[in-house]
Simulated assay, not measured.
Amino acid sequence: MKRKKYNIIFSVILIILLFVILYFAKLYLDDYKSRILNLCAIYTILGLSLNLINGFTGLFSLGHAGFMAIGAYTTALLTMPIPIKEQNFFMAPLISPLDKIVWPFLPSLILGGILAAFVAFLIGAPVLRLKGDYLAIATLGFSEIIRVIFTNTQRLTNGALGLKGIPNTTNLFWSFGIAVITLIVMILLINSSYGRAFKAIREDEIAAENMGINLFKHKILAFTIGAFFAGIGGGLLGNLIGAIDPLMFRFFLTYNILLIIVLGGMGSITGTVISAFIITISMEALRFLDESINLGFFTIRGIPGLRMVVFSVLLMMVILFFRNGLMGNKEITLDILANKLSKKPLTKGGVKR
């Protein structure tokens, strides 16, 4: 009980320290570096949400981009000022009452997550009875259906033209604040009876069912919660970039998130957080490979896409040496850190000093 109290106090101190660092980052970092940090936090949210489905519950879902699209469009449409809506929907007017509604950012974000979760619930009812590759194909198909619907609903999403002039509300405090909330929710959920049920389903569905675990109930719960946070992440991303269109939410976006959880470790919260920062920063750090490099005595012509080739090779090397990702299914907890710090070095006789 005493240790639990100390863990809570230490966690609160870490959160306060994080926001102090973010305050100084906002003051001294330029827009480019701030955007990269925002993307790190958003991909942390998205990685944690997909890891709940794929890593902890053992489902193979590839529909995350569709849920992100729902959250992004919902948040954008509700937060855009009326004059901006009129400028976007010049070919066909926006449907009523969305054309006259302007909501604050937080309620819009939450509603985007709720709508994504609702669609996931409707999709999950028939789809989650499938397993393995069949489930992956079905969720990928539904994600593409959502994207195609958004492309062809001119009066709701502005079709292929997308939305521009979205308020740039997302900042370091919004993205990291929601990332911290997502992290806390995931830790509490995984350490609860529901989390133990998710892991049991992942390890052996037949054994879990024989122990009295309702497979369908827990699968759809994990799927819905993951979709809710995917919608939140999509809303943050849309209001960070300031413009969205259906082509943004293709399978490639789901692939990037899947890459994060595979590299970090399927079923590891710590690994997902670390991997989200590594992949997001590395993608930007290697951008110079796509451009011409002047070495003085000769110039190396840039090859578009070379950055992704080098990045893929580096990832393959990591996967070869770390088959289960950087962390596997392990976690870095406050208790582990405290035990590491409290260990005293041994003397020559093997006795603690």
Rank of each mutant, 00 (worst) to 15 (best):
M1E: 14
M1L: 08
K5P: 00
Y6L: 14
L14W: 10
L18T: 13
L22D: 04
K26Q: 15
D30C: 03
N38Q: 13
L46V: 00
S49H: 07
F56Y: 15
L59A: 11
F60D: 13
S61C: 10
M68A: 04
I70W: 04
G71N: 06
A76R: 00
L78V: 05
I82H: 06
E86A: 10
N88F: 11
F89T: 01
I95K: 02
L98K: 05
D99L: 06
K100Y: 06
I101L: 15
F105W: 09
F105P: 03
L106Q: 00
S108Y: 09
L109A: 07
L111P: 14
G112Q: 09
A116P: 01
V119P: 05
L122S: 04
G124K: 06
L135A: 05
S143M: 05
E144G: 03
L156H: 04
P167T: 06
N168K: 15
N168R: 15
N171P: 06
N171F: 07
W174D: 00
S175T: 09
V185W: 13
S193G: 02
S193Q: 14
Y194W: 14
N210D: 03
M211K: 01
H218E: 10
F223M: 02
A227H: 01
F228N: 02
F228I: 02
G231A: 07
L237E: 07
I244Q: 05
M248Q: 12
G264M: 02
S268D: 02
S268H: 08
T270V: 04
F277T: 10
I279F: 12
I281A: 11
S282E: 08
R287I: 10
R287L: 13
N294I: 05
F297W: 15
T299C: 02
I300Y: 06
R301M: 13
M308L: 15
V310T: 01
V318I: 15
I319A: 11
F321A: 06
P345N: 12
T347C: 03
V351D: 15
K352N: 10
